[in-house]
C-alpha cells in the first residue's frame, strides 16, 4: 500500500515537471545558435550534404569516438559474461528444421543485405544513413544467416580482426588530422580533401571514417548476437 502510494507520488511529481515543460515549450520557427552555424557553414566547411553526418563525424566526432568505445566495452563485457565452458561449447542442440524456402531465400538475400549495408555507410555523407545504420543492417544480415541455419558458427577471429583494425584505423585517421588539418579528428585535411560538393569522393575523410565506424558497429553487434546465440547451448 505504502509502495503504491510512493510510486504514485513519484509519477505525479514527474507528471507535474513534464506538464510545466510542455506548457512552456515554444515551437521554433527558425534555427538559432549553434544549429544555425552548422546549417549555414556545414556545406562549405565540411562538405557533407547530410548535416547529421557532418555533426556526428566532423563537428562532434569526439562524441562518436567515445560512443564506439562504449559499444566495444559493452560487447567485451557481454562476451565475458556469456562465455561458455568447454563442455557447453561442444554440445550440439537439435533445432527444429528450418524450411527449404527460408534457406534458399537466405542464400539470395544475405549478400544483397551486406551490399545494402555497405551502400548505406559509403553514401552516409550524401543520403540518410551512415555507419550506425549500415552496421545495424549488416548485423541483421547475420541474424538472417543464423535464423536460416541455427547450427552455424561464426568465425570469431574474423569479427575480432575487423573490429580491431577498423577501430585502430579511426584513431589513426584522427591523428592524421593533427598532421594535415586543424586538430584531432579534423575531417577536412586543411581544405584540400573536400572535393566537389555532392559527389561520392567529397567531404574529406568523412566517408572513410564513417565506413570504418560502420564495419566496427556491424562487427560488434554481430558479436553480441553471436554470444546470445551461443549461450543457448548452456543448460
Amino acid at each position: 500500500m505504502l509502495r503504491n502510494f510512493l510510486i504514485a507520488l513519484v509519477l505525479a511529481s514527474f507528471g507535474f515537471i513534464f506538464y510545466n515543460l510542455y506548457n512552456s515549450y515554444e515551437p521554433q520557427t527558425e534555427l538559432t545558435g549553434i544549429a544555425a552555424h552548422y546549417a549555414e557553414n556545414g556545406a562549405s566547411e565540411v562538405g557533407a550534404a547530410n548535416l547529421v553526418t557532418a555533426v556526428v563525424v566532423s563537428y562532434r566526432s569526439f562524441d562518436t569516438l567515445g560512443e564506439i568505445t562504449i559499444l566495444f566495452l559493452t560487447a567485451a563485457i557481454i562476451s565475458f559474461f556469456l562465455k561458455l565452458s568447454k563442455e557447453d561449447e561442444e554440445r550440439v542442440i537439435i533445432h527444429r528444421g528450418t524450411s527449404e524456402l527460408l534457406k534458399t531465400a537466405s542464400q539470395l538475400l544475405i549478400p544483397l543485405m551486406f551490399l545494402f549495408g555497405i551502400y548505406v555507410f559509403i553514401n552516409g555523407h550524401l543520403t540518410p544513413g551512415g555507419g550506425f545504420q549500415g552496421g545495424a543492417i549488416i548485423a541483421s544480415a547475420v541474424v538472417l544467416a543464423i535464423m536460416a541455419n541455427p547450427n552455424m558458427t561464426i568465425n570469431h577471429n574474423v569479427i575480432i580482426w575487423v573490429e580491431s583494425i577498423s577501430g585502430v584505423s579511426v584513431v589513426l585517421i584522427g591523428v592524421l588530422g593533427i598532421v594535415l588539418g586543424g586538430g584531432f579528428l579534423d575531417s577536412t585535411l586543411d581544405g584540400y580533401g573536400l572535393g566537389e560538393f555532392g559527389t561520392i569522393f567529397s567531404a574529406g575523410t568523412i566517408p572513410i571514417i564513417y565506413s570504418l565506424v560502420g564495419l566496427k558497429v556491424g562487427a560488434e553487434l554481430s558479436n553480441i548476437l553471436n554470444m546470445y546465440q551461443k549461450s543457448q547451448k548452456e543448460v
Binding site: L31, R60, D63, V217
Partner: peptide, 17 residues
C-alpha cells in the same frame, strides 16, 4: 535542427548495448 538527431543516433545504439 541536426544536433538533437545526431545525439539520438548515438543514443539508440548505446541503448541497444
Amino acid at each position: 535542427d541536426p544536433v538533437p538527431q545526431a545525439l539520438v543516433l548515438t543514443a539508440i545504439v548505446i541503448g541497444f548495448g
